[in-house]
């Protein structure tokens, strides 16, 4: 296992009671590019993402840059250099944009010990300020910095959440449906920001997304889930022409589909 593989997931299985939500899914998402995870509603995409972040119980092994993180919880994984966004955004609603983004870095600095949570050193403060400035810049939301997040539109809030994740200076990022609630224009803007950050910082991204315009624009490689099973993986153009994927999206029975696809 090489360290440039970013995130690797082997034989992931998630059970809720007797119901198998995700079954035996393996995937890998390299650093420096965006990997897509798509599929119809209820296919198990978000469950897979949650399992990658250690917030649901799962079977199988997960590595981040070669480090086995299977047994780690969310905080532990985050401290390995991974963070995430949420489909239903979890923003600090009563804080300003700047404070939200700054917390991305500050939470990391505060970490797990009580002393660092209680006080901050000047050096740590400078680090936070620099990371905040860069993230606000990269996402193009400097002029919003003093606005309270509660009063922003969904599009702006998505960018704040993304900037907060960037300020955390992750090596790997899990994005959960970042375009939901955005219109065409905003989605396009988000895609541009995402592309430039992945290019500039070389981080790895696993993108769970239903908006195919965003996926086909930013993803180099795509995994397709249906009924909790990986039914396809391949490049974007392979995916768009795959009869299996089409069947999954349209709800056809698999028997209708010509055989011979590389599922």
């Amino acid at each position: 296992m090489t360290t440039d593989t970013g995130l690797t997931v082997e034989n992931l299985t998630v059970r809720y009671g007797g119901h198998v939500a995700v079954s035996n899914v393996s995937l890998s998402a390299p650093a420096g590019s965006v990997t897509g995870l798509i599929g119809p509603n209820g296919a198990g995409k978000t469950t897979t993402l949650n399992a990658c972040f250690g917030v649901v119980k799962s079977a199988g092994e997960q590595h981040l840059f070669g480090v086995n993180m299977t047994r780690k919880g969310a905080v532990g994984r985050s401290r390995l250099g991974m963070t995430r966004t949420f489909q239903r955004m979890r923003l600090f609603d009563t804080l300003t944009v700047e404070e939200n983004v700054s917390m991305g870095r500050e939470a990391k600095a505060a970490g797990t010990t009580w002393l660092t949570q209680f006080v901050s050193s000047p050096a740590s403060r400078r680090q936070c300020e620099a990371a905040t400035r860069d993230a606000l810049n990269a996402c193009g939301i400097e002029e919003l910095r003093d606005r309270t997040v509660r009063n922003l539109s969904t599009g702006q809030r998505r960018l704040v959440e993304f900037a907060r994740a960037i300020a955390n200076e992750p090596r790997f990022l899990l994005l959960d449906e970042p375009s939901s609630g955005l219109d065409v224009r905003e989605t396009e803007g988000f895609g541009t920001v995402l592309e430039s950050i992945v290019r500039d910082r070389g981080i790895g991204v696993l993108l769970v997304e239903h908006d195919m315009s965003l996926v086909s624009r930013v993803c180099r490689y795509v995994y397709v889930l249906d009924f909790g099973i990986k039914i396809f993986e391949g490049t974007m153009s392979e995916t768009l022409t795959s009869p299996l994927v089409r069947a999954a999206y349209l709800g056809q029975e698999l028997t209708d589909v010509p055989a011979g696809s590389d599922a």
């Binding site: 969310a74 905080v75 985050s78 923003l91 804080l95 917390m103 990391k108 797990t112 209680f118 955390n168």
Partner: peptide, 24 residues
């Protein structure tokens, strides 16, 4: 005004986000 206050206010709004950012 300090770090703890910021963390407390943030936690009151969205604790799971703090966890995702690496804070215990």
């Amino acid at each position: 005004q300090g770090r703890l206050g910021r963390i407390l206010r943030a936690r009151a709004d969205a604790p799971e986000a703090l966890t995702a950012l690496g804070l215990n």
